[in-house]
Design a protein around this nucleic acid. Sequence first.
DNA 1: TATTGGTCATAGACATGGTCTATATCTCCT
DNA 2: AGGAGATATAGACCATGTCTATGACCAATA
Lengths: 294, 294
Amino acid sequence: MSMTNNYELYKVFYWAAKTGSLSQAAKALYITQPSVSHAIKQLEDSFGITLFYRTSKGVSLTREGSLLYSYIEQSQIFISLAEEKMAALKNLDSGELRIGGSDSLFKHYLLPYLEEYHAKYPGIRLHLNHGTTPEVITFLKEGRIDLGVVRLPIVDPQLEVRESLQLQDCFVAGARYASLRDQTLSLRELLEYPVILFSRNSRARMTITELFQSYGYKLKPEIEVGSVDLLIEFARRGLGISYVTREFVSQELEDGSLFEIKLDVDIPPSHLGTMTMRNMPLSSAASRFVEMIG
Amino acid sequence: MSMTNNYELYKVFYWAAKTGSLSQAAKALYITQPSVSHAIKQLEDSFGITLFYRTSKGVSLTREGSLLYSYIEQSQIFISLAEEKMAALKNLDSGELRIGGSDSLFKHYLLPYLEEYHAKYPGIRLHLNHGTTPEVITFLKEGRIDLGVVRLPIVDPQLEVRESLQLQDCFVAGARYASLRDQTLSLRELLEYPVILFSRNSRARMTITELFQSYGYKLKPEIEVGSVDLLIEFARRGLGISYVTREFVSQELEDGSLFEIKLDVDIPPSHLGTMTMRNMPLSSAASRFVEMIG
DNA sequence: TATTGGTCATAGACATGGTCTATATCTCCT
DNA sequence: AGGAGATATAGACCATGTCTATGACCAATA
């Protein structure tokens, strides 16, 4: 930092040079002509170099002034671009939104919001990163995503969690078990049927396993599958009774390809929520999305 | 001018981003940390966008901040280059000096100064434009040269003229006319010998022609030549008596290859001077040169 | 667990300096 | 000569950038 000029002076210089008139520059900058005159004088004094020839019809650059202008012009161009870009980010005309979550949540929960968001803000690039809840938390902490959408509860002091939706998990079966349609089963009775569960250590599976345990039973799945779609498909084909989120099979429940098994105990509802880093500001794009699904 | 931020804020932003620390930025800018904090806040508020994550060990750019930085960095680079360039111009480490004048003046008068100047300021590029006095004046008015070196007087309200040296013109001859060495001639007697004059409408020729006229004589040259060097050479070879500037033939006068013809009237001295545009500031390079030869 | 030393944020006082108004000066053009 | 433009200058004012003092927070250390 050898020279330590007020950069504001360069803005004044730029407009004076560009318009060829201190008066015009003053108008462009919404200040008065003496202010411009003073600013240019400061700049000239600081360099010890005369930058403009003053004539009765305006000013024109000296050779030294022209040289300065060639640099300052470039500088101004970048600043203008920067300001345009920032405005675009603010208006959500550009930018990106990075969301972490499970495939099933993307497909069955977030999809409509993502469609709406994309339609509204086509300039925002969407990045979807799927993973388990712990993975999503890691993504968040590493700054690889702006927000995560997961099942609650999440307890982590670094995270800020907002509950957005309550879901009800349930057991469903297809035509093969049609006889169960009008019955109400106990947990013990249910265990006599082949149960299909999500394979990974998902929160839903942990919840239902704990429920059985609290009644003294052990829930052992006959089949484990890796995706919610397979849970649904297997149940429809009669391979067993799947534990799914009711809201995610509303289609199948409606068209009758699946039906819900009524139980004599209540399965506690599960909660969906968005999580972000606590004390970490959200981008405009992300906070708008959180707002939308909130 | 959509956005109208104080550009000074970008300087603060640049250093904060570059150092990753508001405190460090404060040191670099010779201001206090709260000032930096305040400046960054202003910038963020103006955009409505958070630019930095604040942690206990400094600050780091958000993605939006990084985007801004990529532009501002370029901008700062150009400003730095500009300031370096201006400093170089001021220090006379770079720049150019454009001088107009006659060939003979360059050779016989300016050469040593040009050598000294160039040795002292090797970064300054020299441009020498030769021409007659009227041509040099035109060059000046067209801005093609910084200063002209010519014989005075010059009367032009647009020009600022500084007299720098007084010269004495005289008639010289070589060995062929050795008999004249100890005589003192009148103008009339001189006319009986072949006179060699500079061909162009030079000020020197006008002066001597007028002198003869004022005594009722008409000076008709036997030979006209186009350069001062030829004036000297022709006189040495005995082709006639040349009208030259005494200071420009000091070498020949000393070694005896030429001698001055004494006259019974005084030839008025002629004056050399530099001329520049009045009310037009000189470049550092030019004013230093004027100073040097002054 | 308390301490220390670093970070940034905040509040309020102060003074620098940028901006204003008023006026002068100059040039060009009518 | 006068008018309409330009820039320069002077001096007053007040906005705002900067300061000091302090708080809150975090991390590493004793």
